[in-house]
Amino acid sequence: MNIFRLTGDLAHLTAIIILLLKIWKTRSCSGISGKSQILFTVVYITRYLDLFTNYISAYNTLMKIIFVVSSLATVFLIYFKFKATYDRNHDTFRMEFLIIPSIILALLIRHEFTVMEVLWTFSIYLEAVAILPQLFLVSKTGEAETITSHYLFALGSYRGLYLLNWIWRYYFENFLDWISIVAGFVQTVLYCDFFYLYVTRVLHGRKLRLPA
């Protein structure tokens, strides 16, 4: 464990908590893409199947359980408890456009051809693009609530910090995994446009509104 990985994990955890609290406190999930949340749930479930086969540490197990349970809770809040507030009309990105290519790529480019390894690789590829329905929703409505911007910033920072962690692990532990690195790079790049707007607008006290 190094500082980049720890802060990355904490950013990830913070993002999830911000989102749950936003929905719970405002009793509304408007501006939130249910499709991105379903995709993240699929990511966690397919990646953390090793909870049943492989013990790493109490920290690792606890975080995995938190990610799976909180993402299921988020999906429940959006599609059941507060479904009247869900922006169904704007959340129109097709999930199969992300899921099917991720499956195909995971079958082709992976370390080993085993069920667990292909599912793990699929989860890495799907996570890289799972935010697209959310970014698409923001671009369709042209704005995001400030709290949603904080959520996106925390979630985007997490994989960026993991990139620094992988550089660290390459130099100090001799670890290298190109699948994680390339997917993590793509994932971080997808947030760049948003990061720019976040720093230039939200941090200056303005709402995130897309330029016309």
Binding site: D9, D50, N54, I56, K64, E173, N174, F175, L176, S180
Partner: peptide
Amino acid sequence: LKSLTLKDEL
């Protein structure tokens, strides 16, 4: 060079 097959990350 080892690969990250330990899957010790989140």
